[in-house]
Design a protein around this nucleic acid. Structure first.
Lengths: 349, 349
DNA sequence: ACAGGTTGTCGAAGCGCTTCGAGTCTGGCA
DNA sequence: TGCCAGACTCGAAGCGCTTCGACAACCTGT
């Protein structure tokens, strides 16, 4: 300070660098962007000047001239009832990956609603958008279509045409559950799914899980029944009672219905089945639900970090104008907890 | 689209607005900024044009010309041992408050280290910085001093000269807990703190709580032991068992470890201690956690939202060149719930 | 030795906005 | 009636950067 310079403080501009290195401003720019060939000697001289002066390009000017802000928006809903730790895992993965692509991340909450999104996009503050925690009929989704910015959704809305979505591979999730149970010796298993209405409303993930479950069971040649399940306590009790009556030897249960999970665990003992001694239960649900359940549930979880990384990688490809797959499915991982065990070999094999 | 216009897509510029309203570009600018008087009729006409065209000022251009990006950085460390939900509360409060001041929030993680901060600041991408989870000897702190951007810390480093810091007054929080227990007649108490690794990192708040706890206990001349505590169920059980063995008369427990709180409550009965009959427990944690616990915990709450809001408010005042207090300590409040009671007067006294 | 490429560098024209100095037009007052 | 102080508005000069066309200075091959 007190340098007596013309401009404020220590703001070093590209002009300063050019003067210091004895080249034109445009040459410095090309050294930085690599968009034109620059001789090795000049490049070195420029780079030396940049280091010597501690130059950092002005983000605003760069954004203005290049029409690229090198910033992406991360839209977090932050509704109550969200599972925050998982959200943070996503967020961290997104930031880290974005930095690898030389982008920064603007944090946007849903408080502002769709207008917030529109503002961010229209002001050219961000080049693209990553949306998290997508609902089936998410109000933000229609907006995305007429926004001028590319976007990637983490999760699948009901109507996903023209969108890029990343999520867990529910087919594999269903399959993995079966494989786990089969490995434990279970030969008579069932899938307790979403309420019937969800299947009727062609909602991809429920169907895929069921397909993965059914087809895998078929491949192993074991008895497997899939059935929808209401979320009320009574609904669950009825389904389960009926199920056990029709399949007395049932020893493995896959539950793909977060709301019903607790009821299932509460109901089974009432029906004379201890978990995991008499019947193994594996769920497809968020970690939190699985951990909080009693006994802790073996479950298939969402690989948060992978999802975040994938989402950003896809967005970057879109930003460069490349085509990307509309749907990216990530491999589920099974975490074994206390609710599954080898089949009891009480009598015969 | 397909308008055959000269510029790309639908980018509406201030020039378009000016033309549409039949005024000069500068007039539009003044309508928007209010920095010069504009007649009501002109203002209305301009605003109408803005709405009609769907104009949003280009953030880059604005930042370049005004030297203000209207963006602040939120620096989250995202280390292990942090309690994520509370972090998110901070983050949400920061974003929401920032928006009220017409600023956006850039999410910065510590992965990049000090260089990341320097880059963000030097590129004029952000006007100011909010740092969270400050350590006693935080490597980012010295950097802040010679950065040209104002900043506010959430937490206190060991050396806080020339800095603006906001936090719960953890020393008082620790002290208040002791005072509460003492008032109930307890003479043999313990502090169950954060995991050891947190203390090793010299994280300010953990130290301050411990100091408040220890020194206050000393002042009252009572037996007090402070010890770190892991967050796993088994970790908690071990610590507690050891603690009770070494201090059989222990009747008061202060828990400053959100993640362990539930485990503590679950473990004590297993060790033959009923809460609050045999042992009183007071926690330093968010209200939510305290209320959800069983029995409901007497607790000192972390006013996460207030802290976040305060931090941004202070930063905004600094941005406007106003002086602000160097240290803002938010007074802890003790809420008495079901987990503390007067000491059992079984024998003497 | 010269047309026709490369290669490396420069100058200048913006990107969309803010801001400052310089008007123009009122109306109040002498 | 003439003058001056607001009240409004305009035009132009950048902010720091990217990018495009131009232009030297070298190569090739013939």
């Amino acid at each position: 300070m007190a340098e007596g310079g013309a401009k404020r403080a220590d703001m070093v501009t590209i002009t300063d660098v050019a003067r210091h290195a004895g080249v034109a401003v445009s040459t410095v720019s090309y050294v930085l962007s690599g968009k034109r060939a620059i001789s090795a000697t000049t490049r070195q001289r420029v780079l030396a000047s940049i280091r010597a002066l501690g130059y950092h390009p002005n983000a605003g000017a760069r954004a203005l001239a290049s029409r690229r802000a090198n910033v992406i928006a991360l839209v977090l809903p932050l509704r109550s009832g969200m599972h925050l730790p998982v959200l943070m895992q996503f967020a961290t993965a997104v930031v880290t990956t974005a930095r690898q692509f030389d982008h920064d991340v603007l944090l946007v909450t849903a408080d502002e609603g769709p207008d917030g999104l529109r503002r961010i996009a229209a002001s050219a503050m961000v080049d693209g958008i990553v949306l998290m925690d997508i609902e089936m009929h998410d109000p933000r989704v229609p907006l995305l279509r007429d926004l001028e910015r590319p976007s990637v959704l983490i999760g699948f809305p009901a109507e996903a045409a023209n969108l890029t979505c990343v999520d867990l591979d529910f087919y594999r999730a269903g399959a993995i559950c079966v494989e786990h149970l089969v490995a434990l010796g279970h030969r008579d298993i069932a899938l307790l799914g979403a309420p019937a209405v969800v299947y009727e409303r062609d909602t991809g993930f429920a169907h895929r899980t069921r397909a993965g479950f059914t087809e895998t069971a078929e491949r192993y040649g074991i008895d497997a029944v899939a059935q929808p399940c209401e979320e009320s306590f009574d609904g669950v009790r009825q389904e389960l009672a009926g199920l056990l009556e029709r399949h007395p030897n049932l020893s493995g249960l896959v539950v793909h219905n977060e709301a019903a999970v607790a009821h299932v665990l509460a109901t089974l003992p009432l029906l004379g089945r201890q978990v995991p001694h008499d019947i193994s239960v594996v769920a497809i649900c968020p970690d939190e639900v699985a951990e909080r359940a009693s006994p802790a549930l073996s479950s298939v979880l969402i690989p948060a970090e992978d999802v975040g990384r994938q989402a950003v990688a896809l967005l970057m490809r879109k930003l460069e104008g490349h085509p990307v797959p509309a749907a990216t499915l990530l491999d589920p991982r099974l975490t074994v907890r206390a609710s599954t065990a080898a089949v009891a070999t009480a009598v015969s094999s």
